[in-house]
Design a protein around this nucleic acid. Structure first.
Lengths: 347, 347
DNA sequence: CTGAAAGCGCTTACAG
DNA sequence: CTGAAAGCGCTTACAG
């Protein structure tokens, strides 16, 4: 193997350079190198330049475990989540990794079961053992105040992702689900629908509550009342969507439009409509929420509310990296309706 | 807050116990505690019992950063992947976490772009900076020999997931895609189909090659020849599936059955069939591969090859934890056909 | 089977 | 603005 210049610059062949190598080669103390690593302003500009150039030449990168041990805090960001859809998990991860790129931080995934009585303890052990720098809390665990309180207790910073601002601006990314659902109501009303229904997610989810309130409220403002029989709670799953659709479409007076709390449940409505010969959108308009890949795989392609999940993940991770404590504006991401072919004016 | 017994057992209030605390409390040297942490046999049974009991009482867990620094190797497993579907990524992650639970290891995710010319360098930096204990290689990066060679070079153990045994048994989980595809061929033949077509994944993917060979070979064995015009290469995406289906279904003599290299492309066939008024399964049988959630959301529900992705991830991670070097049988996972409603005998 | 010393690669606390 | 000493919580190498 030919030796390159870079190889020769390496202080000890075959072993990565350490802070001591850099200090020796630069003719400064390791403490000065440490200051540069940690972006301390207390270093003369020319000293900084000299050392930084050397670090680049040698390909020096500080050891995260050594730094972590000394700091008593790792360079790991945890992602805590319960059971969202695969696409949502992956999008949040991609977004988080966007923010973490070249930061020296890495993303550690930690799914958990929030129905288990001691899941908060499980998260605490994870956080403490790994001395995590911070954690991202994804719905629905992000809505659990007991979890947030525990993290405060053990001094672990966190970033929550939630439908509303249920925490301080430096600890939350707000997704404004209410607005997304309101846009759906406006759209359906503009098409002329008055016999409208909604299949909601579980009332235990804040997102479900917000989407329901947003939808019902916007309808009311436009003079449309949603009777309780037209509001069916389901479980955010395909199967629960099927069951809810059977209830709504089996009624003596069918709605002309159904808004579903997510795309999975909308797929359930499609299933029932196909089975019972109800044509979408001719006889029934359907709207989903998430704008998942599924929305464009269905036929007709499903009109759905898009949420910029990757941006959401990016913001949450970025929040954990910002340690200067400077006040920051509320991080929020706006949903918006993506109109496809699943709606038309009622017959 | 009431003080519990456990609180009082903590050597220093508010700070986690260290190996020194355990050694002092147990009346042994820290080296003995270290031996117990590392499951060394060179400890008397009663010493071991005494110390282990104490560790449990105190809630002592060794600091992974301190251990990692001393070992020059972290307790992190990396998961390297390019661009599979979200469900696949998440299933592999869940499986890996099953294997890692209570092991003291954590999972760090690292997507990359294998089309980028220096992605191998990117992975090397990741692996070396974090001193990873090992990495899981997911298709398609798992098929890249240059990547595996680099990992060997830098002394990082790895576990590849691939359609065939392209590495030693202690470094690979084989998914036998050929067998899954052959089962599809047998099934379609048993229904009486002879005018069969296949939409394959990209020829650069080993999974695509194996599924194609498995399908074509099994058909041949049953006396069915697949002309080149009936073998259309696509890109494992919905859109490419649509384009391939248009080609196949626009031909003067249509096939009576189409096998797709994955469910996404099968959804593309559904789309074209719906648009052109071809009824599934009456006029056209369709089979997918993956058995993703999408398969059961489509109408009619899609017959598809299931692969036990979570098991696959579990095996790959378990492989990285086994460090005794004992010889092990080849890890492999068998695909099998899940029959739904998208096929019937040809008209 | 057990232990005292040195070291892993960094940072903190203090001094200048 | 810079540095020498001590320490973070473990393990290795050696000795007994």
């Amino acid at each position: 193997m030919p030796r390159t210049k870079e190889d020769d610059a390496r202080p000890v062949r075959g072993k990565a350079a350490t802070i001591n190598d850099i200090a020796r080669l630069a003719g400064v103390s390791k403490k000065t190198v440490s200051r540069i690593i940690n972006r301390s302003p207390l270093v003369r500009a020319d000293t900084r330049d000299k050392v930084e150039t050397l670090m680049r030449e040698v390909g020096y990168v500080p050891d995260p475990m050594a730094r972590g041990l000394a700091f008593r805090r790792s360079f790991l960001i945890g992602m805590i989540y319960d059971n969202p859809t695969a696409q949502y998990i992956v999008d949040i991860q991609y977004g988080a990794l966007d923010a973490l790129r070249d930061s020296g931080f890495e993303l550690v995934v930690h799914p958990c079961d929030s129905r288990s009585p001691n899941y908060v303890d499980g998260v605490r052990r994870f956080v403490q053992q790994q001395k995590l720098h911070g954690v991202m809390l994804v719905p629905r665990v992000s809505e659990d105040q007991a979890l947030a309180d525990m993290l405060d207790d053990v001094g672990c910073r966190y970033a929550r992702i939630a439908a509303v601002a249920l925490d301080a601006p430096d600890r939350i990314v707000v997704t404004h689900d209410r607005d997304g659902a309101a846009e759906v109501a406006d759209y359906l009303q503009s098409l002329g629908h008055r016999e409208v229904a909604m299949i909601t997610g579980p009332a235990a989810y804040r997102s479900a509550i917000e989407r329901t309130h947003g939808f019902v409220g916007a309808l009311q403002r436009r003079g449309i009342e949603l009777p309780p029989s037209r509001l069916v709670e389901a479980g955010y799953t395909f199967e629960s969507g099927v069951a809810a659709a059977e209830k709504l479409l089996g009624a003596k007076k069918r709605p002309t439009a159904i808004f579903c709390g997510n795309d999975e449940m909308a797929a359930g409505v499609y299933r029932v409509a196909l089975r019972t010969g109800i044509q979408i959108p001719k006889q029934l308009s359907v709207v989903g929420y998430d704008d998942s890949p599924l929305a464009s795989r269905l036929w007709p392609p499903l009109t759905s509310v898009r949420r910029d999940t990757r941006d959401t993940g990016r913001m949450a991770a970025a929040m954990l990296l910002q340690t200067d404590g400077a006040p920051r504006p509320l991080s929020s991401v706006r949903p918006h309706l993506v109109i496809r072919d699943s709606c038309q004016p009622p017959a």
